[in-house]
């Protein structure tokens, strides 16, 4: 007798988030990137619609990165010392569809750039490359509250994704994102209860749940990946069961975590493997947006995504 597969049908759906605005939508991007919209667990194509593939964004900084290992820096050759050239290289040479710029140079300990210079950098970057942008702060809450509104305003109408809002510091960023027509990254420390609470707090300020992307915080392969995996799985199950407050796509900062691992720093080959495996594992737990560092790892993961979505 033929075995019948039991197919699950879910009442809920993950919200669809579009990053980037072309001319007709009031922006100046050459393309847009759409994530989310699925009503099935990851890759279970027979159970529901999965209209959008996971997408990779190349991570760049507004300054030359200080703590990246040589194995990683060498992939960008000299371009890494000039953030605009770095951005261009990602788009032209490595075919990046999307960039994630971290405003590290605004951190009090890493250059302490002013909001004005941050805004100017974003304007220059928007002129230099035509792909959509994700913009993240340096992680210093007080400074981010000055920098991110300036960046948000400089990118008004470009429908960027800005982050990261956290439970103790979200109001300033939400207000900016609302005013300038962007979407927001809501970050929680591998904690589903806080992820849900933060989404509610943000939506209470008037930003639609459909404009939130969850950063569940991840660990790299060998460094707590399975905790992130289980949190993401639980959130996604709730979302598919109809909990709108958890029905946001996931953004995962893959490169940042993978290249922290000591194993990744042994050799460039091993670093690429570490970053690729962290990414592919998280795709299987529902990651929608992968922020990656090494172009070879990005290429490998892209091939993997294409293969998965072929049939």
């Amino acid at each position: 007798m033929e075995t019948q597969l039991v197919l699950e049908k879910w009442p809920g759906v993950v919200s669809t988030v579009i990053i980037g605005a072309k001319k007709e939508a009031g922006g100046s991007r050459g393309n847009t990137v759409t994530i989310g919209g699925q009503n099935s667990l990851p890759l279970l194509f027979k159970e529901g619609a999965i209209p959008h593939k996971p997408k990779i964004a190349f991570e760049i900084w507004d300054i030359a990165p200080q703590d990246w290992p040589e194995e990683l820096i060498s992939a960008y050759a000299g371009a890494i010392n000039d953030p605009l050239a770095w951005a261009e290289k990602c788009v032209n040479e490595f075919k990046a569809e999307l960039l994630c710029v971290k405003m590290q140079g605004t951190h009090p300990d890493f250059g302490n750039k002013t909001p004005e210079s941050a805004a100017k950098f974003i304007s220059l970057l928007l002129n230099k490359v035509k792909v959509p942008l994700i913009i993240t702060g340096s992680g210093d809450d007080a400074k981010d509250n000055l920098i991110l509104p300036a960046c948000s305003e400089a990118a008004r109408g470009q429908r960027c994704l800005l982050g990261c809002a956290v439970q103790d510091n979200y109001k300033t960023l939400v207000a900016s994102v609302l005013a300038d027509g962007h979407s927001i990254i809501a970050e929680s420390p591998i904690d589903i209860n806080i992820a849900k609470q933060l989404n509610i707090l943000i939506s209470d300020m008037g930003l639609n749940l459909e404009r939130i992307v969850i950063n569940p915080t991840i660990g790299a392969l060998g460094y707590g990946l399975e905790y992130a995996y289980s949190i993401m799985e639980r959130a996604r199950l709730a979302a598919l069961s109809g909990d709108k407050t958890l029905a946001s796509p996931f953004i995962c900062f893959i490169g940042q975590e993978a290249w922290k691992a000591k194993e990744a720093r042994v050799s460039v080959e091993q670093g690429i493997i570490w970053e690729s495996l962290t990414a592919t594992s998280l795709i299987q737990s529902g990651a929608d947006l992968l922020i990656m560092r090494h172009p070879c790892a990005a290429q490998q993961v892209n091939n993997y995504i294409e293969k998965l979505f072929k049939e």
Binding site: N193, R234, G242
Partner: peptide, 15 residues
């Protein structure tokens, strides 16, 4: 049956 958060009553009503 639902995931806890501090505003769980509001979260339920947002459904």
């Amino acid at each position: 049956k639902n995931i806890y958060c501090d505003s769980y009553l509001e979260a339920y009503r947002k459904k």
